[in-house]
Computed example of a mutant assay.
Amino acid sequence: PNVADEIFELDRCFECGCCIASCATKVMRDDFVGAAGMNRIVRFMIDPHDERTDEDYYELVGNDDGVFGCMSLIACHDTGPKELPLQSKIAYLRRKMVSVGLKK
């Protein structure tokens, strides 16, 4: 039930784009994934039904257009209308991707 609650919390994002519109990184980098994309990735990472590995996700967001491009200004967290835990989920994703990157 705890995992289901966490997944449900992230699924509350209806991808309105407020987080992306307020993101300074997105202004500088057209290919930046943004908080909505990273939120969606974390949602699938924590889902036990998803069979992809951390290495698979690293291929998607383990670069400067993904989680390592985030400048952690957290405007996404402040402007999102659903008050999602973007700050903690981006930090979670960054830690996971660093651990994968160190293995490579």
Score class of each variant (00 low, 15 high):
residue 16 C to D: 03
residue 93 L to Q: 03
residue 51 E to M: 11
residue 99 S to Q: 14
residue 81 P to C: 08
residue 67 V to Q: 06
residue 80 G to E: 12
residue 75 A to R: 09
residue 58 Y to T: 01
residue 22 S to M: 06
residue 45 M to R: 07
residue 61 V to D: 03
residue 64 D to P: 05
residue 88 S to D: 12
residue 64 D to H: 12
residue 24 A to Y: 13
residue 76 C to D: 02
residue 79 T to L: 05
residue 27 V to R: 09
residue 50 D to I: 01
residue 99 S to M: 06
residue 76 C to N: 01
residue 13 C to V: 05
residue 59 E to D: 15
residue 93 L to W: 01
residue 21 A to H: 10
residue 31 D to W: 07
residue 55 E to L: 10
residue 28 M to H: 14
residue 17 G to M: 05
residue 18 C to K: 11
residue 75 A to T: 13
residue 28 M to K: 14
residue 76 C to G: 12
residue 46 I to L: 03
residue 28 M to P: 07
residue 61 V to F: 05
residue 20 I to A: 09
residue 68 F to Y: 13
residue 19 C to H: 04
residue 11 D to S: 13
residue 100 V to N: 09
residue 46 I to N: 08
residue 102 L to V: 13
residue 96 K to E: 07
residue 25 T to Q: 11
residue 32 F to D: 02
residue 13 C to S: 04
residue 53 T to C: 10
residue 103 K to L: 12
residue 63 N to K: 00
residue 55 E to P: 09
residue 9 E to T: 10
residue 38 M to Q: 08
residue 86 L to N: 03
residue 85 P to C: 01
residue 67 V to R: 00
residue 97 M to Q: 06
residue 79 T to S: 13
residue 11 D to P: 12
residue 18 C to P: 02
residue 21 A to W: 07
residue 3 V to H: 05
residue 85 P to Y: 04
residue 4 A to N: 11
residue 33 V to P: 04
residue 5 D to S: 15
residue 50 D to F: 03
residue 65 D to P: 10
residue 55 E to N: 12
residue 93 L to D: 02
residue 93 L to K: 03
residue 94 R to I: 09
residue 81 P to V: 10
residue 15 E to P: 02
residue 77 H to Y: 08
residue 38 M to S: 09
residue 1 P to Y: 07
residue 100 V to H: 13
residue 29 R to A: 15
residue 36 A to G: 09
residue 9 E to W: 01
residue 71 M to Q: 14
residue 7 I to V: 05
residue 65 D to F: 02
residue 1 P to S: 12
residue 103 K to P: 12
residue 89 K to I: 03
residue 4 A to T: 08
residue 67 V to L: 01
residue 23 C to Y: 01
residue 72 S to A: 06
residue 100 V to I: 12
residue 15 E to M: 06
residue 33 V to C: 09
residue 100 V to A: 05
residue 23 C to H: 00
residue 100 V to C: 10
residue 21 A to S: 13
residue 26 K to I: 03
residue 64 D to G: 15
residue 45 M to C: 08
residue 18 C to T: 15
residue 71 M to T: 13
residue 40 R to L: 03
residue 40 R to Y: 02
residue 84 L to R: 01
residue 52 R to A: 08
residue 90 I to D: 05
residue 88 S to P: 03
residue 81 P to D: 11
residue 38 M to Y: 04
residue 98 V to H: 07
residue 39 N to D: 03
residue 95 R to D: 14
residue 86 L to E: 02
residue 15 E to I: 09
residue 64 D to M: 09
residue 53 T to F: 09
residue 70 C to F: 00
residue 53 T to W: 02
residue 80 G to Q: 05
residue 55 E to D: 14
residue 24 A to I: 07
residue 21 A to R: 15
residue 88 S to W: 06
residue 37 G to K: 00
residue 95 R to S: 12
residue 49 H to Y: 10
residue 36 A to T: 07
residue 69 G to C: 09
residue 55 E to R: 11
residue 94 R to G: 01
residue 41 I to W: 00
residue 24 A to V: 11
residue 76 C to H: 00
residue 53 T to M: 05
residue 73 L to D: 13
residue 56 D to V: 10
residue 94 R to N: 10
residue 17 G to Y: 01
residue 61 V to T: 14
residue 91 A to M: 10
residue 102 L to E: 15
